[in-house]
Amino acid sequence: MNHKILSSRRNESDVWREDNVIFIRGLTHPRHASQFIKVIYHARKCNYESVIINMNGVSGVFPNACVPIAAAIQYYKDSSLNILVEKQSYKLENAHFNKPLLATSDVLNAQKYFLSKIWEFNNDKMVFELVSALVKAIVEKVECSAGVLQGFEWCLNEVMDNVLQHSRASRGFVMVQVHAESKRIAVCITDTGIGIYGSLADSKHKPKSAVDAITLAVKEGVTRDSSIGQGNGLWGLFQIVKNNSGRLSITSGQGSLFIRGDETKTFDDIPYIDKNHKGTIVDFQIDASQIIDITNALNGFKPVNLRLESLENDTGEHHIIVREYAHGTGTRRAAE
């Protein structure tokens, strides 16, 4: 049987397959992740024992394409598919695209730079230490308006905790990128677990579809199990991003919800790994120049400012050891 995909497909997609070789020419849009999921699924159906992923020509690397593809590659590697990633650019190698960094204390302490890298996490300690490192990296990269850092930290903690609590995946992946010119903070968090529909299917909410499950999940108080969560994680993320006039996309299984300003779109034909691993992709952007009123966004709830609390000494004063931040003050912008 000839499994070869016709070369004309190259003109229709930035990701295509020829026999067991998958060519990727773009990592700048969520559609690139969808295209990859589709072609590697069909490659797997053809029973290839190994797959080569050719990255020659990839220049731009955005979290919302890079992280879902990296997560899928790790899933297939765990499923005993031999995958060789070849011809990576410096940006891809630096992002640890083929082998995400495990967020252990040792690895975090050995790193100088935390942004534009794919991180793997699998427990609460990793989440706490990684989020702390990413917040500090944001401080040194871009000047943030009031509430931005706290909003960013809150969203990151909540979504990563959702992966640990609800996905039934053994791990999650996250990447944070700063676009200094536009002052945008871009975040993508991905898992290859059961998906939001799978999580809520046996709950009292009884979603009818993947899109229905996502739409429910961004409402206040919706959770699979109230004993392990209040159901405010994705709702709070939605509220904070909206308060900031940012952008949010939540994709899980075949469903996707996109929100930007007053614009809302849903999609119900998104490719996914398989029926037991529909996965969830949370992709959002925050404008560092726009104030976030986090208390107003969360309907009066005032979360603990973990960053300030970490700087507080026994007498209630905020104790800042300047030498720990010295490497971030080499320019006037960084110092500010």
Rank of each mutant, 00 (worst) to 15 (best):
A169P: 00
S50Q: 13
L6C: 02
A335R: 05
W119Y: 11
G236A: 01
A169F: 01
L130M: 08
W235D: 04
N54E: 13
R17M: 06
D268L: 08
K204R: 14
V58A: 10
F128E: 15
N11H: 13
L84A: 11
D225S: 05
V139T: 13
V15D: 15
W16R: 04
I5A: 03
L149R: 08
D19C: 03
I250Y: 06
Q150V: 13
K87F: 08
G193I: 07
K206L: 13
V61M: 12
E181H: 08
K275G: 07
A335D: 07
K4V: 02
K87L: 09
N54G: 01
A33F: 06
Q177M: 14
L306S: 08
T190V: 15
L234S: 04
V163M: 04
N162E: 15
T28P: 01
S34A: 15
A137V: 09
E140C: 10
K242P: 00
K99A: 14
E153M: 14
D262Y: 03
V51F: 03
Y75H: 08
A326W: 07
R171L: 04
N244I: 00
E140L: 09
N123H: 12
S199G: 06
L311H: 14
I196R: 04
I73C: 08
G330H: 10
I83S: 10
D262I: 04
Y325Q: 03
L81G: 05
Q111K: 15
S203P: 10
